[in-house]
């Protein structure tokens, strides 16, 4: 495995009770690469994703970022090392406006607001160009003063994307970015995420159910089934693979008992 990968995952293993959710999963994401992780419900995607983003600690195996071992580190440590994420169920600050929410993300990455006299200045006065350009990038100018709790689902996804990008990440982790959205919206959101990530030279690692989205936007696709990585390749290769149909539609002949 190359040492300049944005993310390297080596032989991850995780069990819950007696149930082995992830076993022996290894892969890498190169700098600026867009990689999708797919598989049917219960295949271990979410567990793998949570092992990478620090929410879960693996029983065995390592996670490395740009060569540095980050296995088991928490969300804030990963943020420090240039990792940002979005959540499957949108997570925003529901009591704040879009501008305030994005500003909190921008502010967190700066020193000024946490020292005197910046700490005593109102956030309005800290409204920096970075916040404004992020809001513009995700197309929310018209909604900037709306409270997040009142936004439509698709717009919340955009707010989250802006928040994730506020720290200028080198790796963006997205958990089911288009879940619960209408077909047209999904396409637009993922296209937006990929466009901004490319412009900012960030890699994206995402899990996704919608194969249309995956095949159109991922540069490489990883396929999981029953806790193991069973295939990896370009969208074209994956689309042709009989294995993927088998994994998804469940009419395999080769199944062995659990």
């Amino acid at each position: 495995m190359s040492m300049n990968g944005a993310l390297e995952v080596d032989a991850l293993e995780k069990s819950f009770g007696g149930f082995r959710a992830v076993s022996g999963v290894s892969f890498a994401v190169a700098q600026g690469e867009i990689v999708a992780l797919i598989g049917p419900n219960g295949a271990g995607k979410t567990t793998t994703f949570n092992l990478v983003n620090g929410q879960l600690r693996p029983d065995r195996g390592r996670v490395r970022l740009e060569g540095a071992d980050v296995t088991g580190l928490g969300a804030r440590e990963l943020w420090r090392r240039g990792v940002a994420r979005t959540f499957q169920i949108t997570a925003t600050f529901t009591s704040m406006t879009v501008r305030e929410t994005v500003a909190v993300g921008v502010m967190a990455a700066q020193a000024g607001p946490w020292r005197l006299p910046g700490a005593l200045r109102r956030m309005g006065a800290l409204d920096v160009p970075e916040t404004r350009s992020l809001i513009t990038d995700v197309g929310l100018d018209a909604l900037a003063e709306r409270v997040c709790g009142t936004l439509a689902y698709g717009d919340l996804k955009r707010v989250e994307l802006a928040m994730a990008l506020a720290s200028r990440p080198r790796l963006l982790l997205m958990d089911e970015p288009t879940a619960g959205m209408a077909a047209a919206e999904r396409e637009a959101l993922m296209a937006l995420a990929v466009r901004i990530a490319r412009a900012r030279r960030a890699a994206i690692f995402f899990t996704e159910h919608d194969m249309g989205v995956v095949f159109r936007h991922a540069e490489r696709v990883l396929v999981m089934s029953r806790g193991e990585l069973v295939a990896a390749g370009t969208p074209a290769e994956i689309r042709k693979s009989p294995l993927v149909r088998e994994v998804y539609l469940g009419h395999a002949a080769s199944g062995e008992p659990e």
Partner: peptide
């Protein structure tokens, strides 16, 4: 509700 989720073909 989603009885097949994450199960092997034999179990299905």
């Amino acid at each position: 509700d989603e009885p097949s989720e994450g199960l092997a073909p034999v179990i299905l």
